[in-house]
Simulated assay, not measured.
Amino acid sequence: MNNLPLVLQLQELATNNESDISELLRKSLLVSTKLDLTEFRDWANSELHGYKEDSNVPAYRQVLTDLRVLNPYHGYIPFLIDDPEFMDLICNNVKVTVGIGSLIDLLHGPNPENARLVMPLPSEVTIDLMRMQGRDFQLEPQRIVGRNQIAGILDEVRTIILEWSLKLEKDNILGEGLTFSAAEKNRAHANINIQNFQGILGDVSQSKVTQNLHQTVKQGDFESLRTYLEENGIGAQDLDDLKSAISSDPPGGQVSSYGENVGHWVGNMISKAATGAWDIGIGAAGGLLGNAIGAYYGLN
Rank of each mutant, 00 (worst) to 15 (best):
E163I: 13
E169M: 07
I160Q: 06
S248T: 04
R187N: 11
E184N: 09
N172K: 12
T210N: 06
Q237W: 10
L178Y: 14
E169C: 08
D128W: 15
G252S: 00
K185F: 00
R226H: 08
L225I: 02
P250C: 02
Q198M: 10
S224M: 01
D155I: 05
Q211W: 10
N193L: 07
G235A: 05
Q219D: 04
R143E: 03
A236N: 13
L239E: 09
E223R: 09
P251D: 00
T126C: 03
N196Y: 04
V125F: 03
K218I: 03
I160D: 03
L201F: 00
L174A: 11
I153D: 01
T179F: 15
I234H: 07
A182F: 09
A182H: 14
G253P: 11
M130N: 09
D203I: 05
I200S: 15
R131F: 13
R158I: 04
I173G: 11
F137E: 03
G202T: 02
N148R: 10
G220K: 00
N186W: 10
E230K: 14
L154K: 05
Q219N: 09
S224K: 00
N212T: 03
V157A: 07
S181P: 11
A236F: 13
E169A: 08
I234F: 02
I246H: 12
E230S: 14
L166V: 10
V217K: 07
K218E: 06
I153R: 00
P251F: 05
F222D: 10
A188W: 12
L166I: 10
D155T: 11
D136L: 13
T159N: 11
N186M: 14
R187L: 13
L178M: 14
S244E: 15
I161C: 01
E124R: 06
F180P: 06
K185T: 09
Q211G: 03
V145M: 01
R131D: 10
H214W: 07
F222K: 13
K167T: 09
Q219K: 08
N196V: 02
D128L: 14
S248A: 12
E140Y: 03
N148E: 06
R131Q: 11
F180A: 12
L129C: 03
N172H: 12
L129R: 04
Y228R: 02
Y228G: 05
L213H: 00
I150R: 00
Q149Y: 02
N232G: 04
T126S: 06
V204E: 12
K218W: 11
H189N: 14
R158M: 07
I144Q: 02
D249F: 01
L168S: 08
D155Y: 08
E140M: 07
V204L: 13
L229V: 03
E169H: 11
Q195H: 15
L178S: 14
L239V: 03
F137A: 02
Q198T: 14
H189S: 14
F197G: 13
